[in-house]
Design a protein around this nucleic acid. Sequence first.
DNA 1: ATAATTCCTATTATTATAGTAGTATTTATT
DNA 2: AATAAATACTACTATAATAATAGGAATTAT
Lengths: 149, 149
Amino acid sequence: MQLSTKARYATRAMIELAFNYGKGPMQLKEIARRQDISEKYLEQVLFPLRTKGYIYTQKGSRGGYSLSMAPEEITLYDIIQTVEGSLAPVACVDNAGACNRVDICVTRDVWSRLKNIVIQELKSINLADLVVEQERKKKESGSNIMYQI
Amino acid sequence: MQLSTKARYATRAMIELAFNYGKGPMQLKEIARRQDISEKYLEQVLFPLRTKGYIYTQKGSRGGYSLSMAPEEITLYDIIQTVEGSLAPVACVDNAGACNRVDICVTRDVWSRLKNIVIQELKSINLADLVVEQERKKKESGSNIMYQI
DNA sequence: ATAATTCCTATTATTATAGTAGTATTTATT
DNA sequence: AATAAATACTACTATAATAATAGGAATTAT
Ligand code: FES
Ligand code: FES
């Protein structure tokens, strides 16, 4: 039940973009540097977020990444689901064909509920929430240090 | 966020033992056969459940496995936590030293809540619940077939 | 004594994750 | 038009975790 680093990297990068929202494109190199993530790997991690339309990329010189909608509109669920795929703890929750006796299985209902409550929780948090919370923590801790997550 | 087969095998085996509760020891071979799990692998999977005291094993001829407490007293959390270890989606939730800026991290709180709601859900279901539900499903489906999960 | 069982340890195989590398394409700037 | 700086794309490699297999030691009812 561990979250993949892919999901964590994507979340961290998206928070960077949320901080940068409205300020033009931010380069991959910069995101990777600030978050201490391999550039090439981050590139692959972010790719599906682009195809799903959460981020907009501008190619060429002075290009970069930016959110393609307001931070309020992007939830943690959107991000994690996009890079991790389904949040079902077992395959048959999404695809009944994956197990051979789904009609009589007692745990499937449990896994299904589990999936739902996780989704619900992740949907309840958007990037704007995280930015606000980040600012609050920064102020509270008196630290002006670059954040890292 | 996939559940390991280890966790699923353990759950299935424990449900078998719950069905067999009060009827003496049940052999590993029998559990493995009914659930179509490799004997040798299941042996390893069940081992920690014994050391944690959820199951009692009798060695030697006519030996076998049995629950060491009533099915009501064993929750899915007990089983899964025992074989999978912590349910924290990221390491720093259990061990603040795992990340370097836990004081200022905004997602850590999210992961922590996620862990808690999953635990709460898994704790709410015990083996007796599953046995009852299994019987109900069997009756409802009119099927007398050996169950499989 | 024997047969049937769990206990223990080591090894291997398989899969998924994480990371690296190199080239192609696009675009702002000069 | 040339150049430099960026993303896009594809392929490969390394690492780690999971799943499975194997064989013998210890125990116990018969
Ligand atoms: S039917 Fe898939 S876990 Fe039971
Ligand atoms: S401190 Fe561990 S995820 Fe942020």
